[in-house]
Design a binder for these strands. Structure first.
Lengths: 197, 197
DNA sequence: CTAGTTCCGGACCGATCGGTCAAATACAAG
DNA sequence: CTTGTATTTGACCGATCGGTCCGGAACTAG
């Protein structure tokens, strides 16, 4: 190690994430990334490889963080599994600041744009979805143990259903659908799980 | 009208749809479109305007066709509303030829790629989703009238829930998730609607 | 047939794309 | 201070981008 790097790799990845998130992969140019990260073309290339490799790094970090965030949200020691599930769907149904346009999950956008042509993206998406399904299933089972969800429901099937609703809510958010639609979907999904409001 | 056109507008739009569908908007070049349609750059430009205008024409046609297809599928005079709903979710849960990679709905891909930056796309997506929700609601009400769905369910809420599940299944399909996951989601969604298998 | 109009094909445009490279620079090691 | 190595910077590359334009072809009207 001779000349030390002037940048923080994590910070650069955060900036790059922001850029890809806003514009998508194809619509983000190297110039955009240079502007966002403050790095020169050469540095960017030397540190992360080409545009696609950088994107995969970004996507990987995003998926890891998203799964960790969900795990933290669902595994809070406080409250019951049922309450945590309800809270999760509540948050997902809440469109943020009405002035700022809602920005859907990077994973959803990336999957739609690239999964069909890039196996790496598809694989990462499947991994993440499977992880999320597992987290949901654990909470469903927890809620069943607590008596909040009928014991005769198939936990795995219920989790897959909740996963589909979550991804569907994401898709509806992308289009800017009214929040009431999202709320309906969330409420009905929880009802089908046996969690009435 | 002096020199007649050598091409069929509908046929060209079909080819263009195929191309955009496969690659997305940004990743489709004018050369790709020329190759797919057989038209020269000038003809393409003269007939449809620039790339974005052509894309919007394509998306518009796709949404119209998709809504019409769904309407036809859900309004068949044969069978009951409940059976038609079940059949719809069955089809959506069925990934086609396992060798050919599943190709998700063009609307879903376009919304993910462009809705955040292109208001026209977002509007068209909202319109289409709203239309689909309306069709679903009508069937839910039909099934309620026939006694296949409990009358105490809110039809609108149930329809929004089914819409979210459909879009979620689309998102999971994009990633190539296992068909069993889709089936779980579909089954559970119908169960919540009061339609047991 | 001629005149007028529309359409086709592709050469051409400047801009921008992703990616490379060499010279300048900044540090650690000795 | 000298040497060696790693990093930075930005000029530069060929390819390709979306879009324009024009000469010739194909047709209708008269």
């Amino acid at each position: 190690m001779a000349r030390p790097r002037k940048f923080d790799e994590q910070q650069v990845l955060r900036s790059a994430t922001e850029t890809f998130w806003t514009s998508g992969f194809a619509a983000t140019s190297l110039d955009d990334l240079m502007r966002a990260t403050g790095l020169g073309k050469g540095s960017l290339y030397g540190a992360f490889g080409d545009k696609q490799a950088l994107f995969l790094r970004v996507l990987d970090g995003y998926c890891t963080d998203a799964a960790a965030g969900l795990r933290a949200r669902l595994s809070g020691p406080e409250s019951s599994s049922a309450e945590r599930l309800r809270a999760l769907f509540d948050v997902m149904a809440t469109v943020g600041d009405p002035s700022a346009p809602p920005r859907a999950c990077l994973l959803a956008k990336s999957t739609a744009e690239l999964a069909a042509t890039n196996p790496d993206v598809a694989t990462r998406a499947r991994q993440t979805f499977t992880t999320i399904a597992g987290l949901l299933q654990a909470e469903v089972e927890g809620a069943q143990a607590a008596g909040d969800i009928p014991a005769d429901r198939d936990a795995r099937r219920t989790a897959h259903h909740l996963l589909a609703v979550l991804r569907g809510m994401e898709a509806l958010t992308e289009a800017g659908m009214d929040e009431s639609v999202l709320r309906d979907a969330a409420d009905a999904a929880l009802a089908v799980a046996g969690l009435s409001r």
